[in-house]
Write a protein that binds this DNA or RNA. Sequence first.
RNA 1: GCGCCCGUAGCUCAGCUGGAUAGAGCAGCGGAUUUCUAAUCCGCUGGUCGCAGGUUCGAGUCCUGCCGGGCGUGCCA
Length: 574
Amino acid sequence: MQVFTEPILAALARQTSVPVASLKLERPRDAKQGDLAFPCFVLAKELKKAPPLLAQELAAALAGALPGITAVASGPYINFRIERGLLAREITGQIARDGQRYGGSSEGAGKTIVIDYSSPNIAKPMHIGHIRSTIIGAALVRIFRALEYRVVGINHIGDWGAQFGGLVVALRRWKGEVDLEADPVLGLLDLYQRSKKAVEEDEAFKAEAIAAYQELESGREGEVRELWRWVTEVSLRGFNATYRRLGIQHELVRGESWYEPFLAPALERVKAAGVTEVSRGALIVALGEVDKGLKETPCLLQQTNGTTLYATRDLAALFSRWEEFQFERCLYVVGGEQKLHFRQLKGVLARMGLAWEARVEHVDFGLLLGRGRVKIASRKRGEVLVLDDLIDEVVDEALGTIEAKNPELASKREVADAVGLGALVFNDLKRERIKDVIFDKAEILSFEGDTGPYVQYTHARLASILRKAEASGDAGLSATPDWSALENAGEVLVALGRLPDVVRSAAARAEPSELSQYLLALARDVSTWVSSPDNRVLGSPAGVAAARLALVRAAKLVLGNGLRLLGITAPEEM
RNA sequence: GCGCCCGUAGCUCAGCUGGAUAGAGCAGCGGAUUUCUAAUCCGCUGGUCGCAGGUUCGAGUCCUGCCGGGCGUGCCA
């Protein structure tokens, strides 16, 4: 829409001697009123005029100044309407030119964004806590990449910590009792759960576990180190299989263990900055002076017994990332439960006087809950909801739907995969991040309403029209478009023109839901238009068909580009 | 106790960093020459935007207080 907003804003600026930067255009509440609107309230106040009067004066002054655009005063607003032919030609033209790149820009060229996402713990399959981080993070990676940022996605694997002591002991004792061949990760999960219980109930087990972790931390080669390495390896193999299904690949896979060498220097650096103190035997950074809300919750960097903590490790990682990437933004896609933790981290940076503190952001999100807002427990695996199980279930259901609706389809498996995953991913991205996701199986599996499959289906219908046009050699393929045929498609065209703005804003706010909501609304508009018998494409007079084909092509591209940015496949058929 | 977040139709959510009569989907009801894919489309029903004040020409949106729910809260991650 820039081709239209720019001249309008420039003209307004000329008329009022107000800089373009402080003028903004809105969309009218009702699309029938116009394509763009300018509210005159603020300007009227400055000029000491009544808003409706100013609107009339400006509208009159702009008459004729903008070729193809009419300005009409309506109360305190000026509504702009772009001549339909011009609108259709410009919008479909730009989309056709940009193709798969439409929606992106080069605003991020030369800048780096670090995104910490997914970050599962080894010895456990990817479960409930990592699903949202994985899906939201992967969407953000794609969105930023479309804006030509250099994106460094980091998988901060949880591969360190006291719990491994327990796991090692469990492996020693019960290795033979579980199946570690067929699916090692599920076998390890079993052992992990048993070890957790044993640590609580069995003193001898606990002592052995602590000894094992000390052995691991010492860095010595030996049985413990070997076991840890093996666990890491099979876990990563399992994660990678899941990532492949989701089309995800991190640029860097660095577990917590990778940052071990950075721990001592990081601690020294904080101490040297003079912001630490010893309190109740622990090394802390008091944060009350930089963040009033943190008066009573300092950041603990070292336990009384000298060992480091979660915050210490994350701080070390953060220092290392800043040195390595000089990032524009560093995003942590981590659940809202950890808000305090990231606030503390930023607090420490602030106390150290590090200006890049503002570039570190906690991209938080709500819980994934079951129907009735309860924690999801899987009947199959106790407390753990395994992502792979979830995917299988949804894909199976999609396959069933295909058998029922479109049994002739050639590539049922691929489409079922796309639709099942689309449903799952879209469901996670359609609300604001911060909101809890209610995972209602029945709702997701219905594939109806505000869903990924709905957007995909709209895309497939458009693809079908284009296929048939090609197959039949429709007259519209080679004709000059008669743009008057798109007189009634103004809303769709304006919406198509907005994709670049939506992508930019979704990136700025690290909020993929803005894009999903946009796609839903667009799919609805497109469906309405394409379903109307008045808008039939094939077999219409050549010029009319050509114009409608251009719209269909543009809409298909925009829906497809948008879906791909979210991490969802746009099927040609379904 | 303290800190942070959420509270819009029966349910799940939009509402574009204050602006024109509050919008979708689901559920319910009624329709659509056997369809350029009906996984669709059209119509109807449904709201004191948690409550009370305040700021403003204008508040679902900002401020204060209260109510309800969630998350977190010094040696776990």
